[in-house]
Amino acid sequence: MGRVKSVLIAAALLAASPAAAEFAKVDSQEEFISLIQGKELRRPFVRLEVSREGEISGMGAAWAVTGNWTWQDGYFCRDLFWGGDPLGYNCQEVRAHDNRIRFTSDRGAGDSADFRLR
């Protein structure tokens, strides 16, 4: 069951996204906080809240998502759990455009996940 959950959340959180041309890199923690403060991050089957204090909470499919984050050297670094299973620590590049935000794993070299900010 844990393996199935990991595959489902990885697919939901790291699905390929449109080209990055319209997205601008978020360089600072202050800019990131101004984007996410008071907003919910949404994509199909995923709803997350990322607090300015470094907490992550929400739902992915039918399971709770929890975790913590810090801003390090221009990257959003998070330690995430889905349904109690660890998804691990990863530092991600953040880009934004209008009411959308994109996280790209492995400091911008990995898979991307786009969210709507609502």
Rank of each mutant, 00 (worst) to 15 (best):
T66Q: 06
P86V: 01
S51W: 00
G60Y: 04
E49H: 04
I9E: 14
S112L: 06
N99M: 13
D27Q: 11
P44S: 10
L41I: 02
I56E: 01
G58L: 02
M1E: 13
L13P: 08
I56D: 05
G84M: 00
A62C: 15
L87Q: 08
P86G: 13
S112Y: 06
A19W: 13
R43F: 07
L87I: 11
S6Q: 12
F81I: 08
V94F: 00
A21G: 10
V94T: 04
G88D: 01
A21W: 03
A10P: 11
D106W: 10
T104L: 12
A96R: 08
M59C: 10
W71P: 01
L41C: 03
I33C: 02
M1Q: 11
V94S: 05
K25Q: 11
S28G: 02
W63N: 14
W71G: 02
R100P: 04
P44Q: 00
L35Y: 05
L13R: 03
P86N: 09
A24R: 13
A15F: 13
L8T: 04
T66M: 11
D73P: 01
E30N: 11
M1W: 12
N90L: 09
F45D: 15
S34P: 11
P44D: 01
Q92R: 04
Q72W: 11
Y89C: 07
E22P: 07
L13Q: 08
E30R: 10
W63K: 10
G83H: 02
G38S: 06
D98Q: 12
L48E: 04
A19E: 15
G74M: 04
P18I: 10
F76H: 03
R107I: 13
M1A: 15
D114H: 02
Q72A: 13
R47F: 09
P44L: 07
P18L: 05
S28E: 06
T104D: 01
G108C: 04
E53L: 07
E22F: 14
L41T: 01
S112C: 08
T70H: 09
S6A: 14
D27I: 06
E53M: 06
G84N: 08
C77H: 07
R118P: 15
P44M: 01
G110C: 07
P18W: 11
P44N: 00
N68S: 15
L80S: 15
A21Y: 04
R102M: 11
G83E: 06
L13I: 09
V4S: 12
A15W: 13
A62H: 09
D85M: 03
P18S: 14
V94I: 08
G2N: 10
F45L: 06
G38Y: 12
K25G: 05
G54F: 00
R52K: 14
D79G: 13
R42C: 12
S51D: 02
D79L: 03
F45N: 15
A109I: 00
F115D: 03
V50W: 02
G110W: 02
R116W: 08
R47M: 11
V7M: 13
A16K: 12
S34V: 04
F76D: 10
A12E: 10
A109F: 08
E53T: 06
D106R: 08
R107A: 08
R100W: 05
L117C: 06
D85H: 14
A20V: 09
E93M: 04
C91T: 05
E53W: 01
W82N: 02
